[in-house]
Design a binder for these strands. Structure first.
Lengths: 342, 342
DNA sequence: TTTTAGCACTCGATAGGCGAGAGTGCTAAT
DNA sequence: ATTAGCACTCTCGCCTATCGAGTGCTAAAA
C-alpha cells in the first residue's frame, strides 16, 4: 500500500513529466511540488516507488520516468476528480449544429475538433448500421436499367446505392416490397431482414430472384458497411517532443492510416458507456505501447458512438478529458447523433 | 542552346540523383552513364551546366544536384517518350469495378491506389456537381417534420440531405415541384436552377416560401459542395530519404491535411486535359518548393476529374507516370466516373 | 526513527579535434 | 578538345574531454 506522501510524490512526478517530457529528478519535485521535504527525502521515496514498479530510470543517472502503473493511478485520480465537478465544463460552443453535410459531415467535424482542441488525434467511430432502427426504405426506379436503394434510419442517417436491374420488376412489386419492409419501421434491420426474405420467397415468387437480389444489395448496404471511422488531423503530433523520433511517429501514423487496424482497436474499446482510458501496454497493440487512448462511448437510439483521443502516453489527460466532454456535449446538443423525439 | 552531350550529362545526373538521392559527382557519371568520356570532361560540362543554371552544388566539394530547370528538361523528355509508347501500359488490373460503395468509394480506392503504387501521395479531385448533368430529383417526405432531398446525377452520383419542414407542403406540390425540376434532366443544374426559381415564385405562390427554402437547400447541396477531394495514404513518404527531416515532412503533411489549401493547389492544375507536371517552385506554394505534382485531368460528361501524385521533386517520374496512367485506365474501364451510355 | 546535508560516483549530452573520403578546379600533357 | 594528375576544400564519422544533472550512500541532525 502506498502512503499519502508516496502518492503525492508520484502525482508530482507524473504531472511534471507530462508537462516537460523530460525525466524528473528529486530536486525538481522537492523545489516545485513538495516544498516541505528535501530532495533527499524525495529521493528515498522515489527509490521505493521504483522498487514497487511505479517508476523507472532511463539510465543510471537520469531522473525517473513514470511507468504505465503510475499513469494508471494518475489517470484514475483525474477521472475521479472529474466526476465531482462533472458538469462544470462548458467552454467554446462548437457549432456542429451547422450541419450542412448531415451526419457524415458532423462526424468529420467532430473528429477534427477533437484533434485540433486536444492537439492529439481525434477519432470518431459509428457502429454498424444494422443495429440502428429502420425508419424507411424506398426503391426508386432511376431508369430502365437502374434501381436506387434508399435507406433512411432513425436519426436521419441516409444511405443509398444504385444497382443494376436485370429483370423487369414492376413498379407495383417494388412498392409492395418497400411497403412490406417499411412495416418494420422503428425496429432494427437485423429483425426485419429474416421476415422480409421469407415474404419474398413465398409470395413474390414471380420476381423472387430479382427481389432477392435487390434485398441482398440492401442487406449489404446496411450490414457490411461496418463501423464507420472518422480520423481527425494528425499533424499536431509532430509538434510533440515524443514524436520527434521518426520511427515512433511512423509506427503510429501508419497504424492510423490503416482503417481496419484502427477499427479493431476502437472495437475493443466499446466495453461500457462513459469515459475510459487505455495506457500504453494496456492497448493490445505493439505500435501503441507508447501511446494512450482516451475514449468516451455512448449509446443512443440503439447506435453506439465512440469518441476517442489518441496521444502519447504522456498526454495531458486533463485537457484531453475536457475536450472529450466538450465535443461530446456539442454533438449531443447539435442533435445530430441523437434524435430522441421523432 | 545545349549540346547533345550536355543533354546526356544532365539526363544522367537527374536519373542518378532520382535513384540515389545523393549529390552526383563527375566520376559517377563517367563510370556509370557516359563511359566514353572521362570524369574530367564531364566535370567541365558540369561546370558549364552549373553556370547555365541547371545544376547547383550544395557545398564546394560535394557533387551536383539538379535544379528545377534541369528537372523540367528531364520531365519533358519523359513525357515526350510516353507519347510514343503511349498505350503500351497495361499492368495490374486494379479492380475498381468492385464498386461496393459507388463513386465515393471508387475515388477513395483510386486515391489510395495512387499512393500505394507510386509510394508517394495520391489525390483525386472531383469537380463541383453543378456542372454535372442532372438526372433526376426527388423530394421524399420522411415524416411530418422532415423532407429528404434526393439528387441523382448523370453517372449515378447520388446526393441527399434531410431538411426540416416548417410549413406544410402538400405531397402534391412537392411532386409538382420535382416534376418541374426533372423536366431539366440531362442538362446542368446551373441551367435548371434559374428557370425553376422563376416557376416557384410565379406559380407556387401559396407555398413559395417553403418551396424556395427547399430549393435553396437543394441548391446548396449541389453547388457549394465544391470540389470533392480524396487523399490517399501518406505514410510512404516517411520511407523516403527526402522526408527524413521532420520539418520538411511536417510542412507537406500539414498542407495535405488542410483541404482548402490543397484544393487551391489542385484547382490551379485544371489547365488542360492530359498529364502535366509542376516541379518545385513552379507550384505556387512555399511549402511545396521541394515537391513535385504530377496530375492528369480529364473531362467526361461535363465533369472534370483530376488524378494527382504528390511526391518529392526527386520523384521517380517514370514510375509515377505509369501509375497515373494505370489508375486512370482502371477508373475509366470500371465505368465509374464515366458512364457514357445511359 | 525519520529527515536532511554532504559527497563521491555514474552516465548521457555536448563540443572540439582529427583523419578519411569524395569531389572539385586548375594545369599541363596528350 | 580531351584527359591525367594534383592540390585544395568541405563534410562526415569517430574519438576524447568536459560538463552537469542526478543518484546512492553515509553520517549528522531532529
Amino acid at each position: 500500500m502506498l502512503t499519502q506522501r508516496q502518492i503525492e510524490v508520484l502525482h508530482s512526478i507524473v504531472s511534471e513529466y507530462i508537462r516537460s517530457g523530460e525525466s524528473v529528478g528529486s530536486r525538481t519535485v522537492s523545489k516545485r511540488y513538495l516544498t516541505g521535504h528535501s530532495a533527499a527525502t524525495i529521493r528515498n521515496e522515489m527509490s521505493d516507488l521504483e522498487e514497487m514498479g511505479f517508476l523507472i530510470q532511463p539510465h543510471t543517472s537520469a531522473g525517473r520516468v513514470p511507468t504505465t502503473k503510475a499513469y494508471r493511478l494518475y489517470v484514475d485520480s483525474v477521472l475521479k476528480q472529474r466526476e465531482n465537478r462533472e458538469k462544470d465544463v462548458q467552454g467554446w460552443p462548437a457549432d456542429l449544429s451547422d450541419q450542412r453535410k448531415g451526419t457524415e459531415g458532423a462526424m468529420t467535424v467532430a473528429s477534427d475538433l477533437l484533434s485540433r482542441l486536444s492537439k492529439y488525434v481525434g477519432v470518431v467511430a459509428v457502429e454498424p448500421l444494422n443495429k440502428i432502427l429502420l425508419h424507411r426504405v424506398d426503391f426508386i426506379r432511376v431508369d430502365s436499367q437502374h434501381l436506387l436503394l434508399l435507406v433512411i434510419l432513425e436519426g436521419g442517417l441516409v444511405h443509398h446505392k444504385i444497382v443494376p436491374l436485370v429483370y423487369n420488376l414492376s413498379q407495383d412489386s417494388l412498392e409492395e416490397l418497400s411497403r412490406r419492409i417499411n412495416f418494420f419501421a422503428g425496429r432494427p434491420w437485423a429483425e426485419a431482414r429474416g421476415a422480409i426474405r421469407t415474404y419474398v420467397d413465398q409470395e413474390l415468387r414471380e420476381y423472387a430472384q430479382e427481389c432477392r437480389r435487390a434485398l441482398a444489395e440492401l442487406d449489404e448496404l446496411i450490414s457490411t458497411r461496418g463501423t464507420k471511422l472518422y480520423t481527425g488531423s494528425m499533424s499536431h503530433l509532430l509538434d510533440l517532443p515524443d514524436f520527434q523520433d521518426l520511427g515512433r511517429f511512423q509506427a503510429l501514423f501508419t497504424l492510423l492510416e490503416q482503417e481496419h487496424e484502427l477499427l479493431d482497436l476502437v472495437n475493443s474499446c466499446t466495453a461500457c458507456d462513459g469515459v475510459n482510458v487505455l495506457i500504453g501496454e494496456e492497448i493490445e497493440h505493439q505500435d501503441m505501447k507508447d501511446c494512450s487512448l482516451m475514449f468516451s462511448s455512448s449509446t443512443h437510439a440503439g447506435q453506439r458512438t465512440v469518441l476517442g483521443i489518441i496521444g502519447p502516453k504522456r498526454m495531458d489527460y486533463e485537457r484531453a478529458l475536457t475536450v472529450l466532454d466538450q465535443v461530446f456535449q456539442s454533438l449531443s446538443e447539435s442533435g445530430i447523433f441523437i434524435e430522441e423525439e421523432r
